[in-house]
Computed example of a mutant assay.
Amino acid sequence: MWKKSYFSTNAPKLCNRKTYLIFVLFLSFLSTTANAQESRLAEAPIMIDDKPITTKYIMREGHLLVPALFLKHTGAFVDWDEQYRSVVFRNRGTMFALPVGKKYSDDYVRGTWKRHSLPIETVEFNGEPFVPIVNVARKLGMDVRYDAALARTFITTNIDIQSNLIERGNMTEKLVALTFDDGPESRYTPQILDILKEKGAPATFFVMGKQIRQFPEEMKRIVNEGHGIANHTWNHPDLRRVWSQTVKEEIQSTQAEMAKVVGKQPDLFRPPFGAYSKSDIAVFNELGMRNIMWSVDTLDWSGLSGDEIVAIVNRDISPGGIILQHNFQAEARLLDGTVEALPQIIDDLRQKGYKFVTLQTLLSD
């Protein structure tokens, strides 16, 4: 079922009756118990490495079930095997699968799959698999406890993943990077490029794979005019809500399309919406991608006017700043303010002593 071999020497650990009773009382206190027939599920926060993360949940026979993808917040890889209709979990040397509708797990141990019983089955709600979080977390080598005084469930993941988050560059010099997300396309990208060329200001474009394929000439122009390029996935999904393998494919397919069209594969990546899980960070690291955020959010996507965008930039800019803007196609023309503001942003910041550079230059140190 899976090409790469993983193994675990730990058998599943089942919660005792007292632990489950506590979970029942806790969730009953928060909300009316939900079940798979309800159209709207209840929600509750679960502490992961002391950080509260709210999730939907289902109670079944005294067991707490959460969306399988929620476990990505722990740092474990979470995938879907369509052939066996199973959720597959991986963490270091441990790998196991939970088939939907079954009260067992298939554990990959020393090159073979071995079946182990579980006290509750994995269920499907509105096409989404829900898994017993206590059993899954413990099988992944995590610690789970319930604090009655705080009315909170705590999971200590025991997974250390190195973050490579970057929100700004070197603050000792007055350098600034303009960045544009979601292109290329044919309405705003040419206008932005015209302004940048006229002003002699380089920028960096976080491009989407499907947009490169649809607008290869605009992509070539970005590179030919000396601007930086970076990866922004193929389809712009919320990475927290897609399987780990999908995250990897979103990045790799866009890298391949950039290489095909302009012969470059940058190591800069920005997740759509700036959203990602702990597991996604592990994927970024595996692929050698630096996770680029921003220090100035212009909120231009919301249809702000040019004057409003300029005011935000002048208020929030500082040395080493990374300015977030967009260049997507929109019939509502929400980015007219971006084009209107750009010349003024460049003029204002230059008057303040700033120099415009690509992200590659800003982060070269």
Rank of each mutant, 00 (worst) to 15 (best):
K4H: 12
N10Y: 04
L14V: 13
C15G: 08
R17F: 13
F29Y: 14
T33L: 15
D49C: 06
I53G: 04
T54R: 13
Y57L: 15
H63W: 00
L64T: 11
L69V: 04
F70G: 01
E82T: 08
N91F: 02
G93Y: 05
F96S: 06
Y104P: 06
D106I: 04
K114D: 10
E124M: 13
E124N: 12
P132D: 08
A137G: 12
A137C: 06
Y146E: 06
A149Y: 11
N158L: 13
L165A: 07
T172A: 06
A177I: 06
L178G: 00
D182Y: 09
P184A: 04
Y188D: 11
T189H: 06
I195L: 15
A201F: 01
P202L: 08
V207E: 03
K210D: 15
K210Y: 10
R213N: 14
F215S: 08
I222D: 05
G226D: 11
R240S: 07
S244T: 13
V247E: 14
Q252M: 12
S253N: 10
Q255C: 11
Q255L: 07
A256H: 02
A256R: 10
A259F: 05
K264A: 14
P266L: 00
S279N: 12
R290S: 05
M293E: 09
I309S: 02
A311M: 07
A311D: 12
V313A: 03
D316P: 03
G320F: 00
I322N: 07
Q325S: 14
N327P: 01
E331A: 02
G353D: 05
V357A: 01
